[in-house]
Design a protein around this nucleic acid. Sequence first.
DNA 1: GCAAAAGTGTTAGGTGTACACCCATGA
DNA 2: TCATGGGTGTACACCTAACACTTTTGC
Lengths: 230, 230
Amino acid sequence: MVQFYQQEHRLLISVDCIILGFKNNEINVLIIKRKFEPMKGERSLMGGFVREEESLNETVSRVVAEYTGVENVYMEQVGTYGEVARDPGERVVSIVYYALIDMQQFDDKLKKQHNAEWVNINNVGQLILDHNHFLNDTIRLLKRRTATRPVGFNLLPEKFTLPQLQSLYETIYQTPLDKRNFRKKIFEMDILEKLEEKDKGNSKRGAYYYKFNKEKYDRRLEDGFYFSFI
Amino acid sequence: MVQFYQQEHRLLISVDCIILGFKNNEINVLIIKRKFEPMKGERSLMGGFVREEESLNETVSRVVAEYTGVENVYMEQVGTYGEVARDPGERVVSIVYYALIDMQQFDDKLKKQHNAEWVNINNVGQLILDHNHFLNDTIRLLKRRTATRPVGFNLLPEKFTLPQLQSLYETIYQTPLDKRNFRKKIFEMDILEKLEEKDKGNSKRGAYYYKFNKEKYDRRLEDGFYFSFI
DNA sequence: GCAAAAGTGTTAGGTGTACACCCATGA
DNA sequence: TCATGGGTGTACACCTAACACTTTTGC
């Protein structure tokens, strides 16, 4: 390939991934103890340098798969952080993504292997560099995004119950929601598919399982329906 | 500085700037004819490579000042685009920002110097690479942002009239707004300062000038007031 | 039969939206 | 005096938020 920009400065680009999961009415983020210098052993988000023939999304996918064993996750870019001295090792521009995974699919063996742990997103403690900053920006973005787009489903198993879904939103927004209003809103959207099967794990009566129906959602979108999950 | 990440791949990072101005009830973007290969002479956004000792914001400021003569502009990151083959010259990861400027401050001499022109944001025509994509993402972001944050003021002179402000929002959202409702909303926010002076440019009666009062705004924010400009 | 969670409608209050006339002034 | 844009208040429709009881079933 012809080099047109030969004289320009090149620098390191890392992708930092905020991997989120939902369990026991908590949003959890995966944290590791850093395996290399500088700051070896300190608590950190998962990151990776962008390779030569790899798009940013591919880098995220690679990192997420490496640490969770889950593929094809939902991801979104949070932002890019480029202060000159943000990494004491060398100048690194960091592109931050969050990824939502269904914790049932998480490969638990990888936890020990990477010295990783799931911690409550609101109680993460100190992370290296500007990683706490990344996390705060992510929380804000996640709240905005889940309010008007059907992305929360990515934190649940494919089949989920309405009480589960409601609890997810209550956790994200940290506020109790009215059961009847919540269900009314969800049903009006007409983007869920009710299954025959019930989840009897939490009650004797059992709660019906639902699935998110992307085709229905796309149709509603085209009709200009305005979605608001809260 | 110790090199911890010696073995990692480094790449080019450019910042592309979408410089927006408001004039004659149009949102305009500054477009240039590219001055270097590849694609020399084609229509392009303004960009610059991130230098060694320069943060991303500083790169934006440098580029915006170079092409407009305006300093201390309002800017926001739109996103980072990292497809491997997005630039045929060499792999370049592009970080996109938009910047809002008061077109009265634009240095018109720079237009000829850079072969630049202001074009209506809705009628830009074909740009190089994925620059049209950047622009579309920016328009979406600008609409979202101006709906709930007082950033539109950055497109107006320090002193502006309510008809001007309304016309700005009508242009951004491409929809007519009810004069009384608009004013009611703005006044309820209580973030403007009314001046004695009037603008007699558009009518015999004249319209009062107002200034955005950041202190008032910050106080309202702390009080948890919810801002909605549309 | 009882405990425990799932499921279901209605109403009041508040918010957003539609709408028409008078005012000030330069020409 | 008249043409032009600036400035002002109200009424109705709709949407949001509050609220309590019945159903199901395993134990």
